[in-house]
Each structure stands twice: as structure tokens, then as C-alpha cells.
Design a protein around this nucleic acid. Structure first.
Lengths: 263, 263
DNA sequence: AAACCACAGTGATGCGCGTCACATAAGGAT
DNA sequence: ATCCTTATGTGACGCGCATCACTGTGGTTT
């Protein structure tokens, strides 16, 4: 075959199923303090007052989890929130018959389990460590008490919830407003590109975005089957709409990809 | 025909399309003050301090909108939030080709446009008045300033965002985790029943829930076609799973309906 | 080396359901 | 009364895509 799709050439992505742990991709340094976690300062609770940061530090406890560990499972009572220091966490919805839908891949600095804590409802999704991860855990009651004390943090929490909502809403658009699987995939790829290239307006040059996902995972994100994703990538490539170099997605014809949405 | 489905026997639901305004179903009293709106106190910002309520009152302005009015359209820059005093507002996602997906019907006391305000992103959905409505509007900057001042309200806002997220997440489940349209509808009906009968555990008696929606609207909520909803209701009725009395849904066989999910 | 596994790629098959097309019923308007 | 509109109810048709069942390939393990 003249073409080939190799999404991950070097380091393979971890398996979807919980099988054997893969090697830690980078040194896992144990960080005891939330203040010490650079991600926390940089991304999650940036621009908070020193007091608020200290308060956060006081109630959070760090822990590590192996690959495949489930931080929580949907339906479980909300115990608290996790702030990811290191590694990726897959948030998915699962049905009784084993079908699963990936909602979000949370990166370091992000919070998982937040809606359940705020609303008092059980966890709505399942959080699985894709790699060995380190995360800070904050119990529910202490977190709520903390929020009541520091209004600035509550506002920041509202922002994070908005972001989570936004991601979920995108998912709804993929699943609900598409006539075809091709449309879903095109929408997904364009969104990816838009997120990674916020600067690019209506330009026409090639757009690059990392896409470290297997076809299986993409299928679970847009709600189709793995085979369909494979076939669609072949079609898109034939039509010169996209290219795949390693784990990098290159959109060579953005306008053409947008036409798929209107077909 | 021996059976009939008449979802709304007396007062018909408003049309989906913007046609002519229907008669005001109940007296629309104009309320100038947010404090005076009973819904606001009871449902949205309950248990707030008197100062916080006064602050809210100071920045909000009441207005009325006719049936079919669009409070905002998706893609539009976020101007502010609306607190519904009176009437219902349909929140929907629309694609370019006219396909539309109902995300939520907001009742009096609820807030719409919140995620856009908090995140700074444009409005993500379209808000349409299903009836002549009255709503309080709060401009974005003033609302954010207000939140910064009153931390207790920020926490309440976080709760509301959690609820909105929850509703959107349910939508994702309908759309993504179903093998068939029958599954979607069954899930939808069960969720409806669960929301309206929070007390009922694993009981087996008939469960009642209001269902003031046309087949068309249900179709847009679960992402199928109108005809499919009609056909499925006929099947469910034949199987003695549900009954429809006026605008009241009666689940006669909850277990049987749950079996549809696993089929 | 061989064995194994995860992923990608492809053909064949079948059926779910979207779509079109019409019929019927119930109000509301005039 | 008659017309118009909205909503429900059904049949026929056909495409899209899920599913099954493979093959090929590169990486890892033993």
C-alpha cells in the first residue's frame, strides 16, 4: 500500500482496556504540596491570593495512581475532587452493555469530579488514569467549606465548570447535529485544529494539531465505530483534505473539510 | 382507532416555528424589581443574604419578550444573563442546514446564558421564548463584578452551572450511548420520571410525570425523527410499557422500559 | 527466532431509521 | 358552516453505517 496511517509512531498510546501498565513515560516526582505543583499555580488556580493558595494546600493531599486506576466510577457518591498534577485522565460515560463514550481527556492542571461535588449528585462519569498519574485529592466537605471562605476561588470554579460544560456541549453537537459520520469526524478535526490554533482566522494554509488518539478512541469520542473512522480517514486523505504525520494531524484543505459539514 | 395519543388536550403547546403569537396563557404582570419576583427568591438565589439580593436587584433590569423572541443566538457575543420570571425558554443548538436539537426547556426561576458569561465565550446555544415571557437581564460586566463582590453568589452560580452541565450530559448519554432510537426514548422517559419522582426507588407501581412536549420536540431532544417517536410511542403502548393521558406520561411497566435499554 | 498483541485497513451483509408521501383528527379563525 | 394550521399516525423505500470476519503490520515479549 502506498499510504499508511500510523498515528503514533514511537511511543504507542496506552491501551483502552485495563491491561498491563506501560512504562512511566517521564519521571514521576512525588509532590506533597499543592503549592509545589507547578501546574496548579500555572493553570488551575492562577492569580489567586497567597492565602487562598495556602488554604487549598491545607486541605489537599497528594497521591499517585497506576495506569488504569479508576479515580471514580459513574454512579458512585461524590467523595471529592482531583487535581491532576501529572499524566492524563480519561473521562468517559459507559452504558451497561459495555459501550463507552469518551467525553474528555483531562491534562495536568485540570480538575476532575467537580460537577458532582458542587451539585451533590453522584459522579456522572468514570475517570480512568491513562498513565501512572499523580493527583491532589480534596474531600468534598472541606472543598465546599473552602469555597465558601474564598469567593474568588468559587468564581474560578464557575469558570472551570463553564469549560467542562463547553466540552460536553461540543460532544452534543458531534452526536446530535450530524447527518453522517463523515460530518462528525470533520467537525471533530476542525474543532481540534481550532483549539490548537486559536490565532488562525480564515486562513488557507495547512493547519497542524496533535492527535495522539487511536481510531478506536476517536470513534468513542464522536460516537461511531472504529471501522468507520478508519474508512473516513482514508476518504479524507484521498480527497487531500487531511494528512497524518506521526501523531500530528495536518489539515491541508480546511475549506474542503468544512464542505463536508454542509453536505 | 381504539387508542389515541393526545399529548395536549386543552391548551395546545406553542408551535416550534415562529409563527403568530398565541394568547397569553396567564396574566403577565410586569415586575420591575428582581426582589419582587417570587421565583427569584424561591428558586434561583435562595438563601442569599439581603445585601446580596439587593445587589442583584440593583444591576438587573426587567423586560418582556413576545413569543418567538430570541433572547440570544448561538455564536453571538455574550452580553449578559437572563433570569426568567415568567414563561418558558427553549435552549437549542442549531446547525447550518436547519437541523436543531433541543437541549433544555428553562422554566421560571432559571438562568440562561450563564456559561457564556462566565467563560467569556460567545453564547453557545439559542434561547427562544416559547411563550410571552418576562425576564431580568444583567449585563456581563456588572454581573461579574457582582460575583466578585459576593462570594456566596459565585458558589450558587457554580451550582447552577453544575445543573446545566448535568442536563447537557444527559443529552450526551441519549445521543451517544444508545444503539437504537427505542433506547433513546426509553432513557428519556425514565429520566423524566426520575426527575419528577425523586422519592420513588425501585418500586413497581405506575409512575406519573408531566410531558408537555410534542413528538416533534421529543424527537429534537433525543436526536431522532418525528415519525420515529410516533412509531415508538405506539410500540411502547402496545407493549403496555407506557400510557399517555392528556399531557401526563404514565409509566406502567418501569422494569419493561428498562429492558429496552439493554436490548 | 517465534509468539503475541494492539491497531489499521477492507470486504460483505443486513437492518435501523431517516425521508418522502399521504391520511386523519382537532382546534382556531373567519 | 369552511378553511387553515398543527399534530399524530402509517406505509414504502433506500442509504448509511454497525457489525462480523478477516488480513497485514509494527512493536513487544519470551
Amino acid at each position: 500500500m502506498a499510504y499508511r496511517i500510523r498515528v503514533i509512531p514511537k511511543k504507542k498510546r496506552p491501551a483502552l482496556r485495563v491491561t498491563k501498565p506501560r512504562k512511566t513515560p517521564y519521571g514521576l516526582q512525588v509532590i506533597e504540596s499543592c503549592l509545589g505543583c507547578p501546574m496548579t499555580k500555572d493553570r488551575l488556580f492562577c492569580n489567586l491570593s497567597p492565602q487562598a493558595l495556602r488554604g487549598l494546600d491545607a486541605i489537599s493531599s497528594s497521591a499517585t495512581y497506576p495506569k488504569g486506576a479508576l479515580l471514580f466510577v459513574e454512579g458512585q457518591d461524590s467523595r471529592g475532587v482531583f487535581i491532576i498534577c501529572n499524566g492524563q485522565v480519561k473521562l468517559s460515560a459507559n452504558s451497561a452493555d459495555g459501550k463507552s463514550l469518551i467525553l474528555r481527556i483531562a491534562d495536568p492542571g485540570e480538575v476532575v469530579g467537580l460537577p458532582g461535588i458542587i451539585s451533590g449528585r453522584p459522579y456522572e462519569v468514570t475517570a480512568e488514569a491513562l498513565e501512572p498519574i499523580q493527583a491532589n485529592f480534596i474531600p468534598r466537605d472541606q472543598f465546599l467549606e473552602y469555597l465558601r471562605e474564598y469567593g474568588e476561588v468559587a468564581l474560578r470554579v464557575a469558570e472551570i465548570l463553564s469549560d467542562i460544560y463547553h466540552a460536553t456541549y461540543q460532544e452534543v453537537r458531534y452526536l446530535g447535529l450530524s447527518h453522517s459520520a463523515a460530518e462528525k469526524l470533520a467537525r471533530f478535526l476542525l474543532d481540534r485544529a481550532a483549539e490548537c490554533n486559536p490565532s488562525s482566522g480564515p486562513n488557507n494554509g495547512p493547519i497542524r494539531a496533535p492527535l495522539a488518539l487511536t481510531h478506536e478512541e476517536i470513534a468513542e469520542m464522536i460516537g461511531t465505530s472504529r471501522e468507520t473512522v478508519t474508512r473516513l480517514f482514508a476518504i479524507f486523505r484521498r480527497k487531500q483534505l487531511v494528512e497524518l504525520h506521526g501523531s500530528t494531524l495536518v489539515i491541508t484543505n480546511k475549506a474542503g473539510l468544512k464542505e463536508v459539514l454542509e453536505a
